[in-house]
């Protein structure tokens, strides 16, 4: 009898009232954007958007999920972002229903939306959400397409307080995709990795018009004026850079840049404002 119930639960799409656990901030955002917020039973400690998600039980983090906490929540479905800690295998071993998604690129986000919507029994909402996002991005892309491209570099990390260990978002990264749509010309598009550490030499030679620096944002959130000044001071070491000359070094700290998900159009709009402040976004 129990076994039959188990098989049934695996086969049937989820109904309203069933419980879903999310194991990454991107998945949480997708669930809420699909209007499934009331089914979410657990999220990670990094899930800060939307506000409702902050009040839900925490199951640890993306890289450090607590299996026991997940089990205690008695989920009908756990949605796992592909990760190195073999969470999917571990959850399946205790006979939980697991959906694995990989929203690490724009394409990946759309696929994740479709898969999650299907598993939750609301495939139409998934199609609608993707459609809405695509049309918004198209509008933004068309606007940017009429403008000259701006040479840009986005630094996702560096040793805080220094210009050492600059890590750029290069070709193949989600951020590079967004910058491209917003009218950016990524100066490290040819790098051999998605997030390479780059040399100062190459930065000087390629001379970006805009530097977007997320390097000091060890607490993602708001940039204080004091912090902004400190970052500019760091970069003032290279006054010869166009970005410095034209005062276009922008310290940023925003979840939307690091969480691929339904808010990607907002992220593109933010980039658009930085790359082309002359037009309205």
């Amino acid at each position: 009898m129990k076994r039959w119930l188990f098989i049934l639960s695996v086969l049937s799409p989820l109904e309203a009232g069933q419980r879903i656990v999310s194991t990454s901030p991107g998945i949480t955002e997708i669930l809420f954007a699909l209007g499934l917020g009331d089914r979410v039973a657990g999220v990670t400690s990094y899930c800060r958007f939307p506000d409702e998600a902050r009040r839900l039980p925490r199951i640890g983090s993306f890289l450090d999920p607590h299996l026991e906490t997940i089990l205690e929540l008695r989920p009908d479905l756990v949605i796992v972002q592909k990760n190195p800690v073999r969470l999917t295998e571990r959850l399946r071993a205790v006979r939980l229903r697991v959906l694995e998604v990989n929203p690490e690129s724009m394409q990946g986000v759309h696929e994740a939306i479709a898969a999650i919507a299907a598993a939750a029994g609301v495939p139409d909402r998934g199609r609608q959400l993707s459609e809405r996002m695509r049309s918004e991005l198209n509008t933004l892309g068309e606007r940017a397409g009429r403008l000259p491209r701006t040479k840009v570099v986005f630094f996702v990390g560096r040793t805080p307080g220094t210009l050492d260990g600059l890590i750029a978002a290069a070709k193949g990264s989600y951020l590079a995709e967004l910058l491209e749509i917003a009218g950016g010309d990524n100066i490290f598009a040819d790098a051999p990795a998605a997030y390479p550490k780059i040399t100062h030499e190459e930065l000087l030679a390629r001379n970006p018009d805009v530097i977007i620096d997320m390097g000091d944002s060890t607490h993602t959130g708001v940039i204080s004026e004091e912090h902004r000044q400190a970052v500019i001071r760091l970069w003032s070491r290279y006054p010869v850079l166009n970005a410095m000359r034209n005062r276009r070094v922008y310290p940023v700290a925003d979840d939307r840049f690091v969480i691929p998900g339904p808010r990607m159009a907002q992220a593109v709009r933010l980039f658009g404002k930085l790359l082309h402040p002359e037009v309205s976004w």
């Binding site: 990094y46 983090s61 993306f62 890289l63 450090d64 996702v156 990390g157 560096r158 040793t159 805080p160 220094t162 210009l163 050492d164 260990g165 600059l166 890590i167 550490k197 040399t199 100062h200 030499e201 997320m214 944002s217 060890t218 607490h219 993602t220 690091v258």
Partner: peptide, 22 residues
Amino acid sequence: NVATFAQSFAIIRWLMGGIDAV
């Protein structure tokens, strides 16, 4: 383990070590 994602990123970077233009 208890650091935020951005912090643990910075930590790993630092632990790798490296020479940069200072």
